[in-house]
């Protein structure tokens, strides 16, 4: 049972530290510039625009591979985050970004299917993932991504993942 009287700043710093450890451990995320906003347990992946992310200089448009990586990342982090949430809340898990051995092992992608609904504009992008089914070994995740308007998705994806197994 969570302690109702636990100081708010302590709750926030514990959750933020757990999220930071998940994200900061992955070099590629820093290189493309993907970060996560957190509201309670809800995560929003954020991809600030950069010139190097362009795939079609004539339009211009973000590269389809950037969109794919962004959605796959949103799915993996959401899945890892959701599956460790209880352990973090109960204080059983205290991952530290500076100590790689304390980092949780990430789910592995089995397959990932992306629908490109409209071309990605040279602007910031956002994504939210929903764990549709989460079992002991396999999980299925749906992701949607938008730019200026939440209702006008520029991409959506579904993927299947293999959950890390405890030794």
């Amino acid at each position: 049972m969570a302690n109702r009287n636990e100081p708010l700043h302590q709750i926030k710093s514990r959750r933020d530290a757990a999220l930071k450890a998940l994200v900061d451990g992955v070099p590629f995320l820093a290189w493309v510039g993907i970060r996560f906003d957190r509201r309670g347990d809800e995560l929003t992946a954020v991809l600030p625009f950069q010139q190097k992310l362009i795939g079609n200089p004539l339009l211009p448009a973000i590269h389809g591979g950037v969109t794919a990586a962004f959605l796959e990342t949103a799915a993996i982090i959401e899945l890892a985050w959701a599956s460790q949430w209880e352990d973090v809340e109960q204080g059983r898990l205290t991952p530290d970004a500076d100590d790689p051995s304390s980092l949780p092992r990430l789910p592995k992608t089995i397959d990932f299917t992306i629908d490109y609904l409209r071309s990605g504009l040279p602007r910031d992008a956002y994504a939210r993932a929903r764990v549709v089914r989460s079992g002991r070994r396999f999980a299925s995740v749906y992701v949607e991504a938008w730019q200026d308007n939440r209702a006008r998705l520029f991409a959506q994806a579904t993927g299947h993942f293999m959950m890390p197994q405890d030794e």
Partner: peptide, 10 residues
């Protein structure tokens, strides 16, 4: 990262 392989494939 899987997304890097996706970029090459795409």
């Amino acid at each position: 990262h899987g997304g890097v392989v996706s970029a090459l494939m795409d």
